[in-house]
Simulated assay, not measured.
Amino acid sequence: MKILEKSGFAGLLLLAAFSNAHADGTIKTALDGTFAPHAMPTLDGKVEGFNVDLVNLIGERLGKEVDLTSAQFSGLIPALQAKTYDFLAAPVTVNEERAANLLFSEGFMDTNFAFVVPADVPDFTSLEDFKGKTIAVNKGSAYDSFLREREGEFGWKVESYGTNTDAVAAVLAGRADANLAGATVAAWAAKQNPQVKLSYEYPTGLVWGLAFRKDDVEGRNLIDKVIECLKIDGSMATLSEKWFGVTPAAGATIVTPTKGYGVPGFEGYSEDDHQPSCELN
Rank of each mutant, 00 (worst) to 15 (best):
D110Y: 10
V171Q: 06
T84W: 06
V217C: 13
F154Y: 13
V158A: 05
A181W: 00
S199F: 03
C278H: 11
F266M: 09
P203W: 12
I3W: 01
Y161C: 03
N164K: 09
L57E: 14
Y200D: 11
N95H: 08
L88T: 02
L14G: 12
C278W: 02
E60Y: 12
S70R: 06
K133C: 06
G49D: 02
N101E: 11
F212C: 07
V55H: 00
V137H: 01
A21L: 10
W243C: 09
K197L: 06
D224N: 13
K225Y: 14
F73W: 11
P118E: 12
M236A: 00
L102Y: 09
K131P: 07
R148I: 11
G59D: 00
P78M: 03
A183N: 08
T238V: 04
L57Q: 13
G265T: 03
S199G: 13
R175M: 00
L206T: 15
G152K: 09
I227T: 06
V92E: 12
D110T: 04
L172Q: 15
S70Y: 04
A89N: 01
F212N: 04
S277V: 08
A82L: 03
H38Y: 12
V116A: 08
W243G: 11
P122R: 02
N101T: 11
P248Q: 13
F154M: 09
E279M: 08
G182I: 04
F130I: 03
D272A: 15
E228D: 14
A249D: 14
L206A: 01
S277R: 05
M236I: 03
L127T: 13
R175Y: 04
V137E: 01
P41V: 04
G234M: 09
G245M: 12
D272F: 13
G162P: 03
A173H: 05
E201T: 10
L14Y: 07
T163Y: 02
F87Y: 04
N164G: 15
A186K: 12
F124S: 14
A23G: 04
P248A: 14
A183E: 06
A114P: 05
D32C: 03
I254Y: 01
E65M: 06
S145I: 05
D110M: 02
G219Y: 03
V116R: 05
K197N: 01
D32P: 00
D44Q: 15
F146P: 02
F130C: 07
L12R: 07
Q195T: 07
S126Q: 01
N56I: 10
K46V: 00
G260Y: 00
N164I: 04
F104N: 09
